[in-house]
Design a protein around this nucleic acid. Structure first.
Lengths: 161, 161
DNA sequence: ACAAATATAATGTACCTACATTTAATGTCA
DNA sequence: TGACATTAAATGTAGGTACATTATATTTGT
């Protein structure tokens, strides 16, 4: 279904405006699908992402700063997401002995087990429905990377004026 | 900057996984830019979107149900977003006389004025930075529409672009 | 050594989404 | 008519984002 019909707006100013709305709508649609599938495992998307980063570090610990650096959403509050994972015994938090300001965060065996279960279940496989080919996915990646290349400004800094 | 470098993950399972992550990252990046720019006008993105829908209806009223139907995020709580707009005197809420269950929501002159100001300021113009051409934006729209075509959809539906 | 600066995480607040439940008005129909 | 279903919006709750502030620990400059 075309975006025009999804949100019942027949006219857009131009292809750019349509592309923005399409990006927001389509990404939201994908994330809702994924979040719904994750619910069976008791995880939200940000919780899953942090757990995966921790597995990537394992058996080394990660700090909150490292999590933020690796996260998709840099401004999200890693600290509070770790709170939820700790409550569920999927991670541990200990003061870093070498630098008592920092906190060592580690995935637990239960956390590793949960990620393995999710992989085995195939829930991760149809994150992107197969409406597009691998080659089209490649085109999409190229276009998205291109969008983010700021003309002159420092990347990542939303220079709004 | 390529998505690999943005989130410091050199390897992806395939182009599909990379595309998902790229979509989430890029859309988040765009929305943060836009939200930052809107802050000067005291509006959040959902508030702005609802205000625009109301202007589209003006001088007719809209109901909450109509707003949800037109919104990008169908599951968001239009009622509470309207609360905020009402506090700012940008919209009015009156019980619909023809159907006392429904509520007539209307944009106020102040709301119309604010939208006009935002347009005049050019804040809406660089929502999508000009890293891509109009033709590439068209390709992007086609790819996004294609992603959302559900796998189980009627076979033989030629998704012709 | 010690005051000031900096680093690191946690916390507070406003607003948002997702989803279940509630309240009230209207429609249906025996 | 009166019981029941349906519709429209509001509300409750859990979790997330954005951003400012705070609490400690460490580093730095003199």
């Amino acid at each position: 279904m075309r975006i025009e019909d999804e949100i019942k707006q027949p006219i857009f100013r131009d292809e750019y405006q349509k592309a923005i709305i399409n990006l927001v709508y389509t990404t939201g649609w994908l994330q809702l699908r994924q979040a719904t599938a994750f619910k069976a495992f008791g995880l939200t998307l940000p919780q899953f992402n942090i757990l995966r980063i921790l597995r990537g570090q394992h058996p080394l610990p990660a700090t909150v700063a490292l999590l933020i650096d690796r996260m998709l959403d840099k401004t999200s509050n890693a600290s509070r997401i770790v709170d939820r994972l700790e409550e569920k015994k999927l991670v541990t938090r200990t003061v870093c002995p070498a630098n008592r300001r920092a906190v060592d965060i580690r995935i637990t065996p239960a956390g590793l087990e949960l990620l393995q279960q999710m992989e085995d279940s195939g829930v991760l496989d149809d994150a992107l429905p197969k409406g597009i080919s691998e080659d089209e996915a490649r085109q999409l990646n190229a276009l998205l990377d291109k969008i983010r290349t700021e003309d002159g400004a420092t990347p990542g800094t939303p220079s709004c004026e």
